[in-house]
């Protein structure tokens, strides 16, 4: 291929398609045995044990304030590499395909994002034009600062 392309791992949350750069991902797990952490912000699902390491799970839908469905059972967690942040992962509804997007189809213009995501500026890294829909690419480095901020301003 002539043009450069980036690979994204896509996943669904509340019926929407999101993605994160594949290069940031360490692994994907189906472990759902969470221990909830009192006093932590709402969007923290809790701790989970992945082969002896304790990983902090964050709930994507809570962070994005997307509606949660009752029957969400088959949750998966995308765990990020330690270069992204210490031992954490993102809970999503469903893992989608890995897509390869050529650089010309990636925009960093966030004005086209739905209004409910506007408040979380910085969290959205790019929008990609896929053949049949748009892919919202999230910046995984922005997740932990969000919960830290929330801990320091509990009134929010």
């Amino acid at each position: 291929m002539e043009t450069e392309s980036v690979k994204y791992c896509t996943f669904e949350a509340a019926g929407r398609l999101f993605g994160v750069p594949l290069i940031d991902i360490k692994e994907i797990t189906a472990e759902t045995n969470y221990t909830c952490i009192p006093h932590a912000p709402e969007c923290v699902s809790g701790y989970v044990n992945i082969r002896g390491n304790i990983i902090l799970g964050l709930d994507l839908k809570q962070i994005l304030a997307l509606p949660a469905k009752e029957e969400d059972v088959s949750k998966r967690m995308v765990i990020f590499k330690s270069t992204v942040g210490p031992a954490f992962g993102l809970l999503v509804d469903e893992i989608g395909e890995i897509v390869s997007v050529s650089s010309q189809d990636i925009t960093s213009d966030s004005t086209s994002i739905g209004s409910e995501l506007q408040g979380l500026s910085g969290l959205v890294q790019n929008i990609c034009r896929l053949p049949n829909q748009l892919l919202v690419v999230l910046n995984p480095r922005k997740f932990l600062p969000i919960i830290e901020k929330e801990l320091y301003q509990p009134s929010r």
Partner: peptide, 23 residues
């Protein structure tokens, strides 16, 4: 977890015999 250090009522976490995390 470093992002949760502000929570003062816990000193850490541990793994229990059944593999679950306990605070």
């Amino acid at each position: 977890h470093p992002s949760l250090r502000k929570i003062g009522i816990f000193a850490g976490a541990t793994l229990m015999g059944d593999g679950r995390v306990a605070l």
